[in-house]
Simulated assay, not measured.
Amino acid sequence: MNAPVPPPDRAERQALSAPFLIEGEELIRTIARLADERGTPMQEIVALAIDDYASRHSASSPAPEWLRRYWNAHPLPLPTGLKADKRFYDSLNDDL
């Protein structure tokens, strides 16, 4: 059984209310060239590019390998358990 499709959000409603227009002659030529080389419709080329971008730039994706290596090489110091003196730090800003 198929799950019900959730209603479109504001951005989707706005996008669906008008046709998607790609401006820029060079970009259109690039899409057309890719579509011709691969024998796929231009719309599919755009959809594949969007899917690829979304998968590479997902907010839930883990940190890149170089960043994880940096964190391992430069760990944050352990918490001391001491409370910060708020009045002291506030006084530093008041003296400006």
Rank of each mutant, 00 (worst) to 15 (best):
1 M>D: 01
4 P>M: 05
4 P>I: 04
5 V>A: 10
6 P>F: 01
8 P>E: 08
9 D>E: 14
9 D>V: 12
9 D>R: 11
10 R>L: 02
10 R>P: 02
10 R>I: 09
12 E>N: 05
13 R>A: 12
14 Q>G: 01
15 A>Q: 05
15 A>C: 05
15 A>P: 02
15 A>G: 03
16 L>D: 14
17 S>L: 02
18 A>Q: 15
18 A>S: 12
20 F>A: 15
21 L>M: 11
22 I>P: 01
22 I>C: 13
24 G>M: 11
24 G>A: 11
25 E>Q: 10
25 E>K: 11
25 E>A: 12
26 E>G: 08
26 E>R: 11
27 L>Y: 13
28 I>V: 15
28 I>N: 05
28 I>L: 12
28 I>M: 06
28 I>E: 05
30 T>P: 01
30 T>A: 15
30 T>G: 08
32 A>H: 06
33 R>M: 06
33 R>H: 09
34 L>K: 05
34 L>T: 13
35 A>Y: 06
35 A>H: 04
36 D>I: 03
36 D>K: 12
39 G>S: 06
39 G>E: 07
40 T>M: 03
40 T>Y: 00
40 T>A: 02
41 P>F: 04
41 P>K: 10
42 M>H: 04
42 M>P: 08
43 Q>C: 03
44 E>I: 09
44 E>P: 01
45 I>N: 00
45 I>C: 09
45 I>F: 03
45 I>Q: 06
47 A>E: 14
47 A>H: 05
48 L>I: 08
48 L>P: 01
49 A>S: 10
50 I>C: 13
51 D>G: 04
52 D>P: 00
53 Y>T: 12
53 Y>P: 07
53 Y>V: 14
54 A>N: 08
54 A>K: 09
54 A>V: 15
54 A>E: 10
54 A>Q: 14
54 A>D: 11
55 S>F: 08
57 H>L: 10
58 S>V: 00
58 S>P: 00
59 A>R: 07
59 A>I: 13
59 A>H: 08
60 S>H: 03
60 S>P: 00
61 S>A: 15
63 A>F: 13
63 A>H: 11
63 A>D: 15
64 P>Y: 13
65 E>N: 06
66 W>Q: 02
66 W>T: 03
67 L>I: 12
67 L>C: 07
67 L>T: 07
67 L>P: 06
68 R>H: 04
68 R>S: 11
69 R>S: 09
69 R>F: 02
69 R>H: 10
70 Y>G: 01
70 Y>P: 00
72 N>S: 15
72 N>R: 14
73 A>V: 09
73 A>W: 08
73 A>P: 02
74 H>G: 05
74 H>W: 15
75 P>W: 06
76 L>A: 12
76 L>Q: 12
77 P>S: 10
77 P>E: 07
77 P>A: 10
77 P>V: 05
78 L>D: 15
78 L>C: 10
79 P>M: 12
80 T>C: 03
82 L>C: 10
83 K>S: 13
85 D>S: 11
85 D>I: 10
86 K>C: 01
86 K>A: 04
88 F>V: 07
89 Y>S: 11
90 D>G: 02
91 S>Y: 07
91 S>M: 03
92 L>V: 09
92 L>Q: 13
92 L>D: 08
94 D>Y: 03
94 D>T: 09
94 D>C: 03
94 D>I: 02
96 L>N: 13
